[in-house]
Write a protein that binds this DNA or RNA. Structure first.
Lengths: 188, 188
DNA sequence: CTCATGATGTACTGATCTGTACATGAAAGT
DNA sequence: ACTTTCATGTACAGATCAGTACATCATGAG
């Protein structure tokens, strides 16, 4: 089924925001890129903030779908799937248009905790944590919540290292750390 | 010795940039806050970019001084000092004006790798890595470079979790993970 | 006192920001 | 054919952006 006009606008905005940042991307630029008129743009989205939130929601579903599917494809057991998350990250960070985690960027530019943009970023992280916790429980971890959080900390840290320093090995080094943590958490 | 005018300007700019972001903070605002005139401001710094780089350099020395001194104060052996880094982080993230890592924010808003602001952020991370690698070697790690990188990945990830999700436990959970990695790396 | 020098403040430039008023267009109902 | 309705486009408002031209001021030298 064809994407609606609104979905098309959100998709284009998502790419531009990710590539250039939120404050640095003006509505004029988005209007120019999409070929739509400004009036129509503001018919679809009452404000820039609303457009950003819509873009983050799209990114949330895109990223989770991609990550969870790669994890399921690359790993059979829950333990393997958790480790496979880092293989998926390795595929991602070497892509030429990789620019770090969009939600970290969003939360960085909109820091007030009550800001809808920041809240949307936090929500994404919470959803990731939920999935990891379920898998950690399935894997038989002593403390699934702790293990899930630690693995996600490794994930965020590896992305930051890859983005800020351009470190290519961060994700595989994070995977090695994750393996150690998993071994430790599944032993008893 | 008294701070020079320039140092005072950099210090104030640092606080404002950290609290509100780089693009979101205009030179007009900084001029108003410091009481200086715009002409004088541009006498000290040829451009906003130059001011941001100066602020990041100050932040780099401040943060490294603080972290390394806390690590030395809280830990005796190299191993204890590496772990103590996470205790220091725990002190930091609960401060009311904690807003995440300034260098991650800077690299997020100025993504081009050849941008001086981005480069300054990368440099800070490299200096942290150097210190951690030295300590890991002193601690007798099999692969000091790997261990140092993994510990820093935990550090970045914990800061991100604390900033984006407001997660209070992230730094102590990261410390637990760090302890596991240390145990593993020092065994032979 | 006179004049040069350098720091400072005011007021501005042109560009860009988010958001809107209003004119124009096409399609649909009667 | 005439009017209503709604989507679209143009042009703009008012604020703010980074950066600068120029007037004013204090100070120090001769």
């Amino acid at each position: 089924m064809r994407p609606t006009k609104r979905e098309e606008l959100v998709g284009k905005a998502l790419r531009t925001f990710y590539a250039h940042g939120f404050h640095a991307t003006g509505m004029d630029r988005l209007v120019e890129e999409t070929g739509i008129s400004k009036t129509s743009m503001y018919k679809h989205f009452r404000s820039k903030e609303e457009l950003i939130v819509a873009a983050l929601k799209l990114r949330d579903t895109q990223f989770r779908d991609w990550l969870f599917h790669r994890m399921a494809a690359l790993g059979k057991t829950p333990r393997e799937q958790l480790l496979a998350a880092f293989d998926a990250l390795t595929e991602w960070v070497v892509e030429p248009d990789f620019r770090g985690c969009m939600f970290v960027k969003a939360a960085s530019e909109y820091q007030e905790v009550d800001n809808p943009i920041h809240a949307q970023a936090a929500r994404h992280k919470a959803l990731l944590l939920e999935h990891f916790r379920d898998l950690a429980a399935l894997a038989g971890a002593n403390d699934p919540a702790l293990l899930a959080r630690q693995l996600l900390i490794l994930k965020e840290g590896a992305i930051v290292a890859a983005q800020v320093e351009g470190c290519r090995e961060a994700t595989v080094q994070a995977k090695a750390a994750a393996a150690t943590l998993l071994d430790n958490a599944l032993a008893h």
